[in-house]
Design a protein around this nucleic acid. Sequence first.
RNA 1: GGGCCUAUAGCUCAGUCGGUAGAGCUGCGGACUUUUAAUCCGUAGGUCGCGGGUUCAAGUCCCGCUGGGCCCA
Length: 530
Amino acid sequence: MVPRTAGSTTLDVAVLRARAESAKDAAGKYAEEKVKEAVGGATFHVRGRVIAFRSTGGLSFLRLRDRTGEIQLLAGEAAMGAAYTALEDIDIGDFVEAEGTLTSSKRGELSIEPSRVRILTKALRPPPEKWHGLQDVETRYRQRYVDLVANPHVAEVFRARSHIVRATRKMLDDQGFLEVETPTLAPLVGGAVAHPFETHHNALDMHLFMRIAPELYLKRLLVGGLERVYEIGRCYRNEGISTRHNPEFTMLEYYWAYATYDHLLDFTEVMLRGIDAELGKALPESHARWSAERPFAIDEPFARVPMAKAVEAGARSTKVPAWEAAVDSGGAAALIALLKAGAEGAPGDFGGNMKEWSKSSPRAKAVDWGNFRKGWLKSENDGERLFCAYEYLGEPFLTEDYKAADGKRSIPVFITEYPFEISPLARRNDERPDLVDRFELFIHGRELCNAFSELNDPDDQAERFSEQVRKKAAGAEETMDYDGDYIRALEHGMPPAAGFGMGVDRLTMMLTNAPSIRDVILFPLLRPES
RNA sequence: GGGCCUAUAGCUCAGUCGGUAGAGCUGCGGACUUUUAAUCCGUAGGUCGCGGGUUCAAGUCCCGCUGGGCCCA
């Protein structure tokens, strides 16, 4: 190995560029004399990967990339002497160390004039095509290590993800929260409604589930007096894979004693804008591009819409005459009564009206009637029916119904006033016990957050667990288990509190305009290679 | 689980009507002292995803399977 020149130091590319900043002219070009004037002839070395190599014979140009930036090596036979021939061993993809001084090329590009270049690591496989990078989606996900090198914007998304997580922590830390870690292996399924992964612990001969949510452990900490806690961690759901679903994903949950869901409505707007602002500070150029391309606006106030109102508005938009009349006379409740009567008269087809209703308007035609019907027939009570009506008449149209002042971008929508039947962990509203103090946030039609004032009445909670167990016995696939220890914890007293959950992957998708969750997860789950 | 699309050199892609498998980049050999996707000359590189079928002849047409993508469940 060739020893380094004594006294030379290792520098990041960004540091070098900063040192030569004063030698840069208005057009961003450098002149050799100005560079020498600014930085002198000091020797240093840089380390990085060779990403381009052009040789004109006695002079070679190598582009070097480190984690902070890129810089050109201007390697001349005159300056390097016998060492020049060793450049022949360098391939694109190799990691090298170059030792030299700063200069400029004739075209005005800041460059390092090396006295020697040594290979630190050899790349044995060829890099992807240099014009188009690596395009094949499957190879990109399977060989992310190549994707990250070949497609710089991919690495930028993961830098953004890191800044988003950091900014999220900062928002909560600044409010006096404590970050904690709770079990991902648990003997019971709880905290959400989803199909779990199952596993087994040999020494304890114990059946275990991978957590689908951290909720019940975090609320135990409220009982323990940790009044503001959060966790950012992996959760696992054994369900389908799509552009919005990966079997393992990252969730933020926080629990805030003495806060209510009203408080969290406000804080959610503040937090999302704050995270976006931090991202803008950290990655200004990328952030400018991403925010310009966003189909939604987060700078304007978010809409706040009770679920019943969303159903009423959705029903009116279909222009189904019977629905409009029902909503006029008795709101969402009357609409549900109408649909119920129809469904009972002729199960599966809303009383034979479905075909006719679907012709009432373009909006009516766009309704997913088949699944609406299926969901409706599975609903056991009016709370579930309201939610079903919301899922098929309201939620799919939020993006077009709630627009920013420019009339183009959508605005985020909080749906509030959820039925208690579909919210087994949320606190009932004081005035209307059929509702819970809960909201979900939808940004450009995609669910991002779920939050509510927490149910802290052990008797009510025990009843709701029992109802979940009954549903499971009746054949429901996605239910919570009865968690006796959690009830015991509530019996010790949980302070009134509000809790909040958010998909970190989805937030990253939204802020970086990523079309698929696989674009924000470094190693998404794929079928094994054959 | 269903529908549509897709699979050709290490990478990015062509391949027409069924008639001997193509280009660029990369690689390898050579020229070149200011390149920026350098340029120029030469050269190598193929189980056309897998398995059947039709045909004198299949990368191409048909069937099945597998991987991947998009949409729906």
